[in-house]
Amino acid sequence: MERVATTPGRALELRGLRFAWPGQAPCIDIPGFPVAAGERCFLHGPSGSGKTTLLSIVGGVLSPREGRVCVLGEDLAQLSARARDRFRADHIGFVFQLFNLIPYLSMQDNILLACRFSAARRKRIAAAGSTPLAEARRLAARLDLPANLLARPAMTLSVGQQQRVAAARALIGRPGLIIADEPTSALDADRQTRFLDLLLSECDAAGATLLFVSHDRRLSAHFDRVVDLSALNQAAKEVAS
């Protein structure tokens, strides 16, 4: 299951991807979109560009009607719903705009939650000679989260702290792909930059591919490659025109 190491080529590849909600016109129509392993890709997606649906497809929550969705060399369309859930748990880390955490769990338990659903993440941590708890604490420290907050319930943390906890949870156990969906839009400008720096450096350290989705083009300077989702998605164009 170690696709990270054995697939040096593409972290993500969409080809001929089409998706429509039942009884509606297609909202996703992407002829081709490759992301190289280790790449930091900025996906510019204003609202209405089909962003949420696309991320659900890449995450394996939705299944496309047509086309290939290859994540880390695995064609998700070939997998059962259960296997896609398992794949998401093992290989993809998500960070959303807001409300990433289970409010009543502590910071530490929120980070560890990713390991609860994935044996592969626990195995990778063990292979690196660590334990989930030690790894959670290490990531927290790397992301500027003070150790004295580890036991605090998530709902008592500031928004900035919450986003960094979400990042730590996405990164724990070294998944191959990190998908960040507007992770900084709830933060002020100063914190946006700091959060981005931390996220980028931790993705580098983990060797993870980063797919960063945002409507805010100012952040795109930090990335290897910038892609416009409305250009990529033929369906969005039709809607727009």
Binding site: G59, R86, N100, I102, L113, A114, F117, S118
Partner: peptide
Amino acid sequence: ILRALGAGPR
């Protein structure tokens, strides 16, 4: 959130 972390509907 649990779904994003890999929990299935089951």
